[in-house]
Design a protein around this nucleic acid. Structure first.
Lengths: 343, 343
DNA sequence: CTGTTAGCGCTTTCAT
DNA sequence: ATGAAAGCGCTAACAG
């Protein structure tokens, strides 16, 4: 036993010196053994290994990182919310790719609060994480300029760096929106509503794509069908209700992100609306709904993989400057987007 | 400008000494200002603040933690997979609660691989995280004994510590299973199938609850209706297909976790089966499916909150020993669980 | 109010 | 093959 009183008088952790003493050697020899470096005789090495086992020694990585001026082999990922499946899939793919480089991916959510996002990013940097995967909807990243200049590995994913230069994996938001809208136009829809969030670059781009596409096809945009709302489920539900309950409701809805969609679908269903529906971003439940939901989607796994490559390049210093990759978005017809307008 | 060549010759970070020099004071005065400690004259303090701003000084938290023998104010959460909504909700609640204590929650997935889980836990400890929230389905946690004994704050969530004593937030798995099965029995079902994963304590408990309840009601368990499969979507789909395609299919299915359910529902739908269905664990898409899915669920937000309280207690040393809390599970009828057996 | 010294746990460097 | 000294960036514990 170790504690002396009743409660846990947390005994100090075992250090490299404790091991050294137990093995009758210097700390350096222990260090060499722990790191598999040469310069220790087999006899001594064995004694040291034993001591390590016996004492349950675990090297303090903070001390190592401090001395070596390296990161903790942790890679931080900051996402706007923990619910959107696309973020999760990106994280999973990045995690798989980065594991091979000995990096552990840890995730945290900003809640779409720029203040919190910056605090998180700062915290990760101060705490010695090796790099950052940043899914940001903020519209000003200049606070990162000093860090970026110092070579801090930060890769933007899904949303572009604003006011600074940094590597980024982006999505063809306009193209995706065009695909969605043209799909609906092709089915004969003319009154096509859009539900977009008020914040974030992707939302703005998707809205722009919607407008452009309608214009290109000579279809006037009815302002009443353009819903800009906060980025939440309830907002999606409310917007949908307002659209469907109109005297002249739309015959189709283009919903531009997951959380809004998650609110919109139940609202649609409650009202028994036969409105066509296309969502931006794929999600598992899309196949569960009735009818299954047609989506426009990027390829999150490749995004995660690409992002991983870029951070690793940045960490190794192999990065040939801020690279920017844009991945395409494609449409997956499942039923809801193929509903015809009422005759 | 800072770099001298073309590529990023990452200039060293600004240290407390750089600030001290710039302000013409000692490092200690800077430290005091940074930490809001008294003992620095207003004049000096102002000069120091200026220098901090000018140089963009950010304290190295690893150095601080090393010196103070404290954690990095990071709390690690390890979950079996990043898809199960319950884990996400627990994390969100814990995050909210822990933020007030200045702790940042970071999450990583073990993928239900005990080796990886242990590696993650070890990595988090070695890297100076303050504590751990561990959602584990492993069946042996003795490797944590030394850490626990040293007072390392580890709280188990959803699955119990095996072979060691540690605080835990658990779920009444048997009770939940009983509730589900009795609900189906009450609707006249006698051929009730169960789909459970082969791994993890919760799965075993839910299965046991199923068996007990049927026995208590004098309903024999048909072994053909007990599907034990790996913990994955495809496994849920396959198990469902096998059940439904039988000559004597069950009239109801009790599916014991989210991933299995996510596979089961599409399979059920494809086959146009009118089988009643109750799932353990709630999920957003439950209301989207047709019919909406009846679930038995715990209260993830309270679980997260409780877990947060226990870690904080453990971190502060306020913990009065390994506390164990079991939260109840209740049934939410939505439609799928109220389908009657075919006449 | 301000500064000096020492040292957290580890590793680089330079002896031996 | 092994070890002693020094120091990563920061801060307790003492001076003054």
């Amino acid at each position: 036993m170790a504690g002396r009183g009743s409660a846990s008088a947390p005994d100090a952790a075992v250090t490299i010196r404790d091991v050294a003493r137990a093995a009758g050697v210097s700390a350096m020899s222990v260090s060499r053994v722990v790191n598999g470096k040469p310069g220790v005789g087999p006899e001594t090495a064995a004694r040291i290994e034993n001591a390590i086992q016996a004492l349950g020694f675990r090297p303090n990585r903070m001390a190592t990182s401090l001395r070596q001026k390296r990161g903790l082999s942790l890679l931080g990922m900051v996402v706007p919310d923990p619910y959107t499946p696309m973020f999760t899939e990106i994280a999973v793919a990045a995690d798989a790719a980065l594991r091979e480089h000995g990096l552990i991916v840890v995730t945290a959510s900003s809640g779409r609060d720029p203040v919190r996002e910056r605090a998180l990013v700062g915290s990760f940097i101060d705490r010695g994480l090796d790099g950052l995967l940043l899914v940001s909807e903020d519209d000003d990243h200049r606070y990162l300029a000093p860090e970026l200049q110092r070579g801090r590995p930060v890769v933007f994913v899904g949303g572009p760096p604003v006011g600074v230069e940094a590597p980024a994996i982006l999505v063809d938001n306009r193209g995706g929106a065009r695909t969605a809208v043209e799909h609906l136009l092709g089915r004969g829809h003319r009154r096509i509503a859009i539900i977009a969030s008020t914040t974030g670059f992707p939302a703005a781009e998707r809205l722009a794509g919607y407008r452009q596409t309608l214009a290109a096809h000579g279809v006037p945009v009815d302002p009443a069908l353009v819903m800009r709302v906060p980025h939440g489920r309830v907002d999606g539900a409310r917007a949908t209700a307002r659209l469907v309950d109109r005297a002249d409701p739309p015959t189709a809805i283009f919903c531009t992100n997951y959380l809004l969609t998650a609110g919109a679908l139940p609202a649609l269903r409650e009202r028994g609306s036969g409105c066509a529906f296309v969502a931006f971003d794929d999600f598992e439940a899309a196949t569960l709904a009735e009818p299954p939901v047609t989506v426009v989607t990027q390829d999150p796994p490749s995004m995660g993989r690409l992002a991983a490559e870029l951070v690793v390049a940045a960490i190794d210093g192999t990065g040939g400057g801020p690279e920017r990759v844009t991945v395409p978005a494609r449409l997956i017809p499942r039923g809801s987007g193929e509903l015809p307008p009422p005759a």
